[in-house]
Design a protein around this nucleic acid. Structure first.
Lengths: 211, 211
DNA sequence: GTCTATAAGGGGATAGAC
DNA sequence: GTCTATCCCCTTATAGAC
């Protein structure tokens, strides 16, 4: 007879159901924004009733916060220049752009939720940005300034450099509808992301005078 | 006795009231998105009741469409490289960046409404983009390719170049909450936009090898 | 854990008096 | 043109049976 049934192998473990809900929620929040998203829609996508969804997440607000957390956990590493492989500006900047573009490709809806949140003044996010993103940014700014001092690249404003990289990479997730329209495609393909990565890398390394 | 009372000088002309509503609507749609925005909020900002607002604009949908139209009319010129002064790549690209940045500074909420719309798949905008923006983009791409053929700049993909410029300039409107947080300011100042413009111009002209 | 029923409120929009 | 009153639907959330 089974003895080790402590974790209770339900039909679907609670963790797994929560994961399914969170995935569906990310899609719906990306498409309609926080207010526009109906938990009913999320529930249906997951195969639940909305009352049942509220058993797993006690409120829409809590669910949204969880979606944001998941995205941010995934993002934070990639947002750090210092976390990249390599030790010279050239490979690290190239790696940084590549990592950011890969996230735009693999998690476009997470990016959209984040973008909408920032556009609307980051009401659910300001604290997180201050406590997690900003300290990391300061470290990265310091690194850029060291490179400049060591004459490894042109003297530029590090902050605006990061704003430019964030914008130019995230736009392939957030503005994909406009971009695919401009490129005459139903949706962006692998090669589009590769071309974009190549363009940005080339432009930046040359434009920054990276040696 | 008054004879020329044909245009009926009401307390506030219809046109003026509509303008006030449209301005308030732009702010509220920018802050909450289409679904999240309540016409009640817009009406209060204008000093009207929502029923009265609905006298001027028969539905929320129509009001939103009008807001979008206003923004796009303003934008279209600035989105065209060909519309810039100058006849050499250097001055035209510089002028293009400057114009886009000025719009981010002067009409941040219009930019935010536009951005949210694109993020959500451009449901109210696709037709306009196809009929107005894309033809203009094609002309601009042609121009860039001519410059490349004439060896006035490096051979780059013109499309990704425009995506990059759009993203990097509009981010100062759309993501201003994040940027001002990073810069440690309550809100962005004139000098921040100047620095950003300078940074982008310098980076692009050098990075593109513009002669 | 999942269901039905229902509360409670907000939102867009219309009717009609003034 | 502006107001009050009202309709009706949709949404979040809770209660309680199974």
């Amino acid at each position: 007879m089974k003895q080790n049934v402590q974790p209770k192998p339900k039909r679907l473990s609670r963790k797994l159901t929560e994961q399914k809900i969170l995935l569906a929620a990310e899609d719906v929040f990306a498409l309609y924004g926080y207010q526009g998203a109906a938990i009913n829609t999320i529930a249906e996508l997951t195969g639940l009733t909305k009352q049942n969804l509220l058993y797993y997440f006690p409120s829409k607000e809590v669910l949204y916060q969880k979606v944001l957390e998941n995205i941010l956990d995934l993002w934070l590493d990639k947002m750090a220049l210092l976390a990249q492989r390599g030790d010279d500006p050239k490979t690290m900047i190239a790696s940084y752009i590549k990592g950011k573009m890969e996230i735009s490709q693999s998690h476009p809806n997470g990016s959209k939720v984040f973008a909408t949140e920032i556009i609307q003044g980051a009401p659910h996010l300001k604290d997180y940005l201050v406590s997690h993103l900003l300290p990391q940014l300061e470290e990265d700014v310091k690194l850029i300034n060291e490179w400049i001092a060591a004459d490894k690249m042109d003297p530029v404003d590090p902050y605006h450099l990061f704003f430019m990289i964030w914008a130019s990479t995230q736009t392939y997730a957030d503005f994909s509808s406009q971009i695919s329209l401009a490129l005459g495609k139903e949706q962006l393909a692998e090669t589009d992301f590769e071309k974009a990565t190549e363009f940005l890398t080339q432009l930046l390394l040359k434009g920054l005078g990276v040696k």
